[in-house]
């Protein structure tokens, strides 16, 4: 089952040299990318959210843009606007920052819901419609949005229905002491990154994405995914169970995970590995505090059929 080293292996290796001590998170981020999903990073400033996004863009040779969200931002600031060109006496569409291959949407919860939904719609549809005209976004298209869980004053937290648009939600956390020492002693990450060559082209990424879609999920595995979904629906601590779309997302992410592992078939561990990131933001506990759902506890309660 354990496959040969694939072309994603150098990608992982290179990413790990830039982002120290965060193997799991890097892996999840790349799995999210391979599964053609968008990523939501929820963490404090300064733990390397931007670096992670930068690294991915750099290593894959993707066109990268960063957009800092603020409360006075309008949808046009995201998707672009038609501006009257006096010279030619016509309206010209000026594409917004969303017209890129990798968009880092920083502090997405600072923007108004209107602006948020403009971005989220673009994410979902992979196209932008303004003034009756539909413009496709570049391929591949990948959004990494960040959210600051602390200091929520004056923010508009993404509603649950919008959270569903993100395939995964991860947090990065502080590095361990060894990685932190390495980080402090070593080169500045930006410079390091600037020197790092791309290990894969956007076309290569698309090829990998196609392979992920082709990863086999056997009946036994689908039964396992179903058992997990059923369990979330019957757990009284949860407000509601996972939707069928969440089930699809889970399977998609598990496929990417299996592919990262060099396998052409999903095993239960793949599902278990991605489950916290895929399900975490889709499940809500009944208690008002809205504490994080112990995804591990959920998994532990579901026997593998």
């Amino acid at each position: 089952m354990r496959g040969q080293e694939t072309s994603v292996a150098p990608l992982l290796q290179a990413a790990e040299t830039v982002i120290l001590g965060k193997t799991g998170q890097v892996r999840l981020a790349i799995a999210c990318l391979l599964a053609e999903g968008h990523l939501l990073i929820e963490d404090l400033p300064g733990v390397g959210k931007t670096t992670l996004a930068h690294t991915i863009g750099r290593l894959l040779g993707l066109e990268f843009r960063r957009l800092q969200f603020t409360s006075d931002m309008l949808p046009a600031d995201v998707v672009g606007a038609s501006i009257y060109d006096r010279h030619h006496a016509r309206f010209d569409f000026h594409p917004g920052p969303v017209f890129t291959q990798l968009l880092l949407a920083d502090e997405v919860n600072r923007a108004t819901p209107r602006t948020q939904s403009a971005l989220l719609e673009a994410m979902e549809e992979r196209q932008v419609t303004t003034e009756g005209e539909t413009r496709p976004l570049p391929e591949p298209f990948f959004v990494i949005a960040t959210q600051n869980p602390e200091n929520q004053v004056g923010t508009f937290p993404l509603p649950e229905s919008q959270l569903d648009r993100f395939l995964m939600r991860i947090s990065i956390g502080y590095p361990d002491s060894r990685a932190e020492r390495q980080l402090l002693a070593g080169q500045d990450r930006r410079h390091l990154l600037a020197e790092t060559p791309a290990v894969m082209s956007p076309e290569g990424l698309q090829h990998e994405q196609a392979q992920v879609r082709d990863v086999h999920a056997s009946d036994a595995l689908i039964a396992y995914v179903q058992a997990i979904l059923a369990h979330t629906r019957s757990t009284p601590e949860l407000q509601h169970g996972l939707s069928p779309r969440a089930g699809q997302a889970l399977l998609r992410a598990a496929r990417a995970w299996a592919h990262l592992d060099g396998r052409d078939a999903v095993v239960p561990e793949d599902v278990q590995a991605v489950f916290p990131s895929v399900a975490g933001h889709r499940l809500q506990t009944c208690n008002t505090a809205g504490e994080a759902v112990p995804a591990e506890a959920l998994l532990a309660a579901v026997p593998i059929p």
Binding site: G24, R27, W257, D261, E269, D270, A273, F275, P276, L299
Partner: peptide, 8 residues
């Protein structure tokens, strides 16, 4: 091991 531990 933790149920979520990956196959690595």
């Amino acid at each position: 091991g933790a149920a979520g531990s990956h196959a690595g």
